[in-house]
Amino acid sequence: MKRILVVLLTISILSCNQNKKDENVKPEITENKDAIPVEPNGGIGDGALSISDHFIKSIEKAHKKEEFLRHKAVSFYIKIIFNGQEHLEGKVTMLTNSSKIRIDKKDESKLIYDGENVYLCPADANDKGARFDMFTWTYFFGLPYKLSDPGTKWEMQDDRTLNNVLHSTAKLTFEEGTGDAPDDWYVIYADPVAKSLQAAAYIVTYGSEGNTSKAESDPHAIHYKEFTAVDSIPFATKWEFYGWTSEKGMTDKLGEATISDITFLENEGALFDDPENSKIID
């Protein structure tokens, strides 16, 4: 009988010690190095990104925004055909933050934006659509890196079909006084898997002087295609332009652009200096 009591007492002591050890064991915490940072306060769910912020950050990550902005400038050759006619051909050079731009056209005329003014060189060159060309095509090229610029406003929308695949979409608008055309808007299409920017519907209100009814009645869309990597950063080398409606999506094809010779530069030199024999384009 004494042996039985001793055995039971020993089992009881061992069991208690084991329970104390279990109480001191903490769950292992693993760090997800690829997780998108969240706001410390003020987000949805005590720090989580809002749906629209997550949409933006996912696109920026897919297009490697941080790596892109580490470079000082980027240049590329562009050829644009619209409505069956050549609209623009030449070399574009821009700072990666879009604060300075230069376009050397095939006809040897130049457009230069030095951060304050747009210059046309030579002064007697054709200035039709000069300011539009200065900012529109570079904005399309840099769009994946412009989504969180100051003055941008976002509204998530229903998924839309592109190439028979449902894509997440969101509408981008701008605060008053933002850029040359704050009344413009874009509907951004993001790939459901890669999260890259695949297309954008848009209106062009530049020069409308506040009357946006014509632009609103005729939205267009750009479809980004044939991506290639330069320094591991993806770029679309073919753009296609279409009519667009909210109900049907892309309709008739209107034009296309080819992008080639994408090159990063680390020193701007005198590329964006005010040129001689030029005039300012308002």
Score class of each variant (00 low, 15 high):
Glu175Phe: 09
Glu175Lys: 14
Glu175Ser: 15
Glu175His: 08
Gly177Tyr: 10
Thr178Asp: 08
Thr178His: 09
Thr178Trp: 06
Thr178Val: 09
Asp180Tyr: 12
Ala181Gly: 08
Pro182Val: 05
Asp183Val: 01
Trp185Pro: 01
Trp185Asp: 04
Val187Gln: 07
Ile188Leu: 11
Tyr189Gln: 08
Asp191Glu: 11
Pro192Asp: 08
Val193Arg: 07
Val193Ser: 10
Ala194Val: 08
Ala194Met: 13
Lys195Ala: 10
Leu197His: 04
Leu197Lys: 02
Leu197Tyr: 03
Gln198Asp: 14
Ala199Trp: 04
Ala201Tyr: 03
Tyr202Arg: 05
Ile203His: 03
Val204Phe: 09
Val204Asn: 10
Thr205Ala: 12
Thr205Ser: 14
Tyr206Phe: 15
Gly207Ala: 02
Ser208Thr: 06
Glu209Thr: 08
Gly210Gln: 04
Asn211Ala: 15
Thr212Ala: 12
Thr212Cys: 13
Thr212Val: 15
Ser213Val: 10
Lys214Asp: 13
Lys214Ile: 15
Ala215Ile: 07
Ala215Ser: 14
Ala215Thr: 07
Ala215Arg: 02
Glu216Pro: 08
Ser217Tyr: 12
His220Asp: 05
Ala221Thr: 04
His223Met: 10
His223Tyr: 15
Glu226Tyr: 09
Glu226Cys: 08
Phe227Ala: 00
Phe227Met: 01
Phe227Leu: 03
Ala229Gln: 11
Asp231Pro: 00
Ser232Glu: 10
Ile233Tyr: 00
